[in-house]
Every structure is written in structure tokens, then in C-alpha cells.
């Protein structure tokens, strides 16, 4: 058995095993990455199974039982109007994860498409080159804004709802993907296969879609997971100032905000538990992000697989 393992290690070193096998190896060598996937899965399951698991309704107040400390009846206690905190905490991923994932995906799709177009036409002259230049300057202006104030203003002007929070998050994230994609495409555009595709008679749009985009997606994909975590923080922050999801909808940020005054007077549970859930979830996404980052970095991957193989040989000896 150890011998077989040493061989797989050696094969991984030469890069001939499947990607999945390497990923599993990495997960075994660095358990914290596996932890990231477990956390995110748990958050998704909590949201999905909340109606089955939650002992109380997440939105119904029971004024007779306000600010109960954690107990057998209310595992995480109740808040100032008597809503069960455990039920609300496990319902919240439905809102928080949905908003963050939808917002991030939307910004990635829009940002990548615009970024690809801009990158493809950046060095060209004429109307298209000029338009590409203009888009980049617009992105400069967007990024010069204080992000938080910008997001609040967007939500306020579009009217407060879940959809507008998604739009606001998508909007503030677009420049990230736009820039990543643009710089990738600008390098790939010079490749021979792109030239070949054009010479073969494919249109610009088709060349971008079939040959440029797939080769340029890497960095943008690596950004996704970290970005989801960051968007969850932004969603919660918006709710915290009252510009996001409104109470009594179960959402971590607004739960923290509503327990704010209680914390000062000593009832810590209405704010601490939702914040903990939020922090752990974002932590899970950043772990996934760093596993993807490692996976996409050939130098570090090579070093890691080499170390793993060496360790196995040691153990075998």
C-alpha cells in the first residue's frame, strides 16, 4: 500500500494524474481546505433544510419570551421582540448566500463579457478602441468611489429590496472582473491561434467566444469564491445601516444590528450568534478561495506535490 501511494505521488509530480485526484491529494495534505468546503456545504444545507430543522418560525415574534438567554427551549436565546435566534440564524443563508452568490455571478458574467470586448479592442484604433478607452476610464471613476457609500446610494435610488441589493453588489464588483479579463485577453489576443481563427474566417464575436474567453477565464474564476465571501460582508453591512434587507426577514447583518443596543446592556446573544455564523461562512469561502489559488499556481502546486511525495517515501522507508 505505501508503495502504491508513493507511485501516485510520483505521478502527480509529473502532472499525469487527473485533476480531481490531485485536488483530493491536496485536500488530504491541507485539511483546512477541506474544512472550507465543509463549512460552505453546511451553510447551504442549513438554508435548504431550515424549514425542517427550525424549531420556531423565523419571523414570528413572541413578546412573552423576549431576550431569553440560550436555553433548552431556545438554543441560541431570543431577541428583543421574542423571535427565536437559532431559527433565524439557520434561515438567513437563504437570503445572505442567495444575494452574495447572485450578485457575484452577475458581476462576473457582465464584467467578463465587457472585459473581453474591451481587452480585444484595447490596442485597436478607431471608434472601438476609443470606446474601450472610455469604458476603462468609467471603471476608474467607479473604483474611485467609497464602495460602501456607493452601494448604499444605489440601493436607495433603486428602491430597497432583495433584487436591488443584488444589483448594487453586482455593480460595485464589475470593475474587478472587467480588469482581470481585460488584461488576460490583451495577452491572449496576440496568440497565434487567435490569428488563425480570424484568418480562417471566423467573426470577431465568434473568435472571442470560442477561443479567447475559455483561455482567459482562469483568474476570474479564482476570484469568485473570495468575492462571494466579501459580498456576504457587504450585504450584511448594508442591512446593518438599514439600507439592505429589512427586518423581520432573517438576515445576519440586520440581526446583528437589531441586537446592537442589547449587547451594550449585557444581552450578547442576539448579535453574537448571527455574527459568528456570518464570520464562519465567509471564512469557509476564503478557505475555498485559497485552495483554488493554490491549485491554480503551478509553482506552489509542484512544491506541494513534491513535498507530499517525499513525505510518503519517508514513511514508506
Amino acid at each position: 500500500m505505501p508503495e502504491a501511494e508513493a507511485t501516485t505521488g510520483a505521478i502527480a509530480e509529473t502532472g499525469r494524474t487527473s485533476r480531481l485526484a490531485t485536488l483530493l491529494q491536496v485536500a488530504r495534505a491541507r485539511p483546512r481546505f477541506a474544512l472550507g468546503y465543509v463549512i460552505v456545504l453546511a451553510a447551504v444545507l442549513a438554508g435548504a433544510l431550515a424549514p425542517l430543522v427550525a424549531p420556531y418560525s423565523p419571523v414570528e415574534a413572541n413578546p412573552a419570551e423576549f431576550l431569553q438567554p440560550p436555553s433548552a427551549q431556545h438554543w441560541l436565546g431570543t431577541d428583543a421582540v421574542g423571535m427565536d435566534i437559532f431559527s433565524r440564524v439557520i434561515y438567513a443563508p437563504r437570503i445572505d448566500l442567495a444575494i452574495a452568490v447572485a450578485g457575484t455571478l452577475l458581476s462576473a458574467v457582465v464584467g467578463c463579457l465587457i472585459g473581453a470586448w474591451v481587452g480585444y479592442h484595447s490596442r485597436g484604433g478607431g471608434l472601438r478602441g476609443w470606446l474601450a478607452y472610455l469604458v476603462m476610464r468609467a471603471a476608474d471613476v467607479m473604483q474611485a468611489f467609497p464602495v460602501f457609500v456607493f452601494a448604499i446610494a444605489l440601493v436607495a435610488s433603486l428602491g430597497q429590496s432583495v433584487q436591488t441589493v443584488v444589483l448594487a453588489i453586482a455593480f460595485v464588483n464589475i470593475p474587478i472582473y472587467l480588469r482581470l479579463m481585460r488584461s488576460q485577453v490583451m495577452t491572449i489576443r496576440e496568440m497565434r491561434y487567435v490569428e488563425a481563427s480570424l484568418v480562417a474566417g471566423l467573426s470577431d464575436a465568434r473568435t472571442i467566444a470560442r477561443h479567447v474567453m475559455p483561455n482567459a477565464m482562469g483568474p476570474a474564476l479564482a476570484q469568485l469564491s473570495v468575492n462571494v465571501g466579501w459580498s456576504i460582508l457587504l450585504t450584511a453591512g448594508l442591512s446593518f445601516v438599514g439600507a439592505g434587507v429589512r427586518s423581520p426577514t432573517p438576515e445576519w447583518g440586520s440581526m446583528i444590528a437589531s441586537g446592537f443596543q442589547n449587547v451594550v446592556t449585557g444581552e450578547w446573544w442576539p448579535s453574537v450568534f448571527p455574527g459568528l455564523a456570518l464570520a464562519v461562512t465567509v471564512f469557509g469561502f476564503s478557505l475555498i478561495g485559497s485552495s483554488v489559488e493554490l491549485f491554480a499556481d503551478p509553482v506552489k502546486m509542484r512544491r506541494l506535490t513534491r513535498d507530499l511525495a517525499a513525505r510518503r517515501r519517508e514513511r514508506a522507508a
Binding site: 460582508l233 446593518f240 447583518g253 446592537f260
Partner: peptide, 16 residues
């Protein structure tokens, strides 16, 4: 961990 902590929540915990 630091990147995952909502600052407004950490502030509340510190106040507590």
C-alpha cells in the same frame, strides 16, 4: 480569519 470578520460585529463583541 481577519478577512472573514465583519468589523461592526467585532466592534460589538469588543464593547461587550
Amino acid at each position: 480569519t481577519a478577512g472573514a470578520l465583519p468589523d461592526f460585529w467585532l466592534a460589538l463583541v469588543l464593547i461587550f
